[in-house]
Design a protein around this nucleic acid. Structure first.
Lengths: 131, 131
DNA sequence: TTTCACACTCTCTTTTTGGTAAGTATAAAT
DNA sequence: ATTTATACTTACCAAAAAGAGAGTGTGAAA
């Protein structure tokens, strides 16, 4: 398969294993729900599962659990279980989670600032394709 | 906006439709291959299809074409077709593409800076889960 | 005449992802 | 005795994404 051709020297000085790790980490962390959850947890502080779900329109229970778990595993979120009935579990961002939120700021503001530019580009592209 | 990660009370005032547009745009633009292609196009300037594919280990032809097209549609990439045989097509980042690359820098460096922190967090989590 | 180069496109198959809905545990309230 | 609340887990299924591989067009070189 020609698509798998390798040319190691093109990556220059950077260790390709580190590159791969960075790519993987970004893929996990730049996920749609993760980004939204960071936002919600930042804006509203420590919250319970149900509160979060109400603030995030469109998440299924499954995805919320899954994303929260992954974030916890990656050290972005602290999960506190209170041994009561019915269960009470609270989530909040760790320092690491907050710092990721700050790192995302650039992308967020880029998206906000360029919504129209992108929309215009799309229209141009689609017209060229059609005409 | 909430993306600025500053004050909780600003969250309520945002138009949810704009929020949704921003989320969608980020989802398209924060995609794994898009990020890698921005990097490669930034580092090596204007390149042909095959050159790019050699510099990106693991992309299939399909994904490369698809991602490049999406980027072109979003105005991130300029595609230049030279009417010769065999075909010659060159790709380069637009200003918008470059600006997105800069916006990503924060996330990129966050990932590099925190690789170990995350790895440690994961090990802790996995041990807790096992034990 | 066959081969090669390049940048795709198309089809088929596999893998991954995500939704839905039901089930679990427990104590208090009705 | 039944319901309610919370925070899940599990099983099943449909949809979407991605991979593999073959095919396309054209002119020049072997």
């Amino acid at each position: 398969m020609a698509s798998q051709l390798q040319s190691p020297e093109t990556y220059g000085e950077i260790d390709p294993r580190v590159e791969a790790l960075v790519h993987d980490l970004i893929a996990q962390v730049a996920d749609k729900w993760t980004m939204i959850l960071i936002e919600v947890l930042h804006d509203h502080g420590e919250q319970r599962f149900t509160q979060i779900s109400k603030r995030v329109p469109g998440v299924s229970q499954k995805m919320l659990t899954q994303t929260l778990r992954q974030m916890e595993r990656n050290g972005l979120v602290l999960r506190t279980v209170h041994p009561v009935v019915p269960p009470k579990v609270e989530y909040r961002l760790t320092k690491l989670g907050e710092s990721l939120g700050e790192a995302f700021c650039g992308v967020w503001t880029w998206a906000e600032d360029n919504l129209e530019t992108v929309e215009t580009a799309r229209q141009g592209f689609d017209e060229r394709a059609a005409g």
